[in-house]
Design a protein around this nucleic acid. Structure first.
Length: 219
DNA sequence: GGCCAGGTGTAAA
DNA sequence: TTTACACATGGC
């Protein structure tokens, strides 16, 4: 491994891939399910999202038109385990309207500026929009999340108070614009963070050979 | 019982 | 332009 000053984001990617292997993201049966999951997972544990998606499937409600036709109260109950269910029910319906209006994921991908239009929807911010672009539409945009910010700040690569755009710019500058690479990298970041980069600054037996600011070997 | 989880919108300083 | 707060369930 190179010294810290020479270490790049790509080095970290290779290290994570060697450690964890391919992650096969995003877990979903369809682009629409993926995009629904992106909204449901906002500030929420993925396990809770799975409960909600399971309930939607069981009710034959994982469909844009069905979600628009049913009572919003019913939709709330189906997605309740994912938390913030009142907000998310409304956000899902706004998105479903958008989805049908533009002819599904293929129609959305053909828009002139799908990111800008997704961001114009209430309830879809940069991470949700970029997740959809990358994981449902296969577009090469890097997805930044709380784990990304935490890991790369602790490694000393980016500022702790960097904005979403700052972080995305950093990765876009460091890496080739490659959707499969961005797909795998983000998934690996999540996998790693869940095990070794929790909020409490205790990094035990971290597999990254580069000590971050909170790793036990660097404390 | 408290903390945390694959954010976002709004309002106030 | 930044900061604070509401939104809510479930696992540990």
């Amino acid at each position: 491994m190179s010294k810290r000053g020479q270490t790049t984001a790509l080095n970290i990617y290779r290290l994570l891939l060697d450690t964890y292997g391919k992650q096969h993201w995003w877990p979903s049966d369809s682009p629409f399910e993926m995009m629904v999951g992106a909204i449901l997972t906002q500030n929420t544990n993925w396990q809770n999202v799975e409960k909600a998606i399971t309930q939607l499937k069981a009710a034959d409600a994982l469909d844009a038109q069905v979600m628009l036709d049913m009572d919003e109260a019913k939709l709330r109950e189906l997605i309740r385990p994912s938390g913030f269910f009142r907000q998310k029910a409304a956000r899902l319906r706004l998105f479903c309207h958008f989805y049908l209006k533009h002819g599904g994921e293929s129609g959305i991908k053909d828009l002139k500026d799908p990111r800008r239009l997704l961001l114009s929807l209430n309830g879809i911010g940069p991470e949700t929009a970029d997740s959809m672009l990358l994981y449902a539409l296969g577009m090469p945009v890097f997805v930044v999340d709380a784990y990304t910010r935490r890991i790369f700040a602790r490694l000393g690569f980016t500022a702790a108070d960097a904005t979403y755009q700052d972080l995305q710019d950093y990765f876009h500058a460091q890496l080739e614009r490659d959707a499969p690479l961005f797909n795998e990298f983000h998934a690996l970041i999540v996998q790693h963070a869940k095990q070794h980069c929790r909020v409490k600054p205790v990094c035990q037996s971290c597999p990254l050979s580069i000590p971050c600011a909170f790793s036990s070997s660097n404390a």
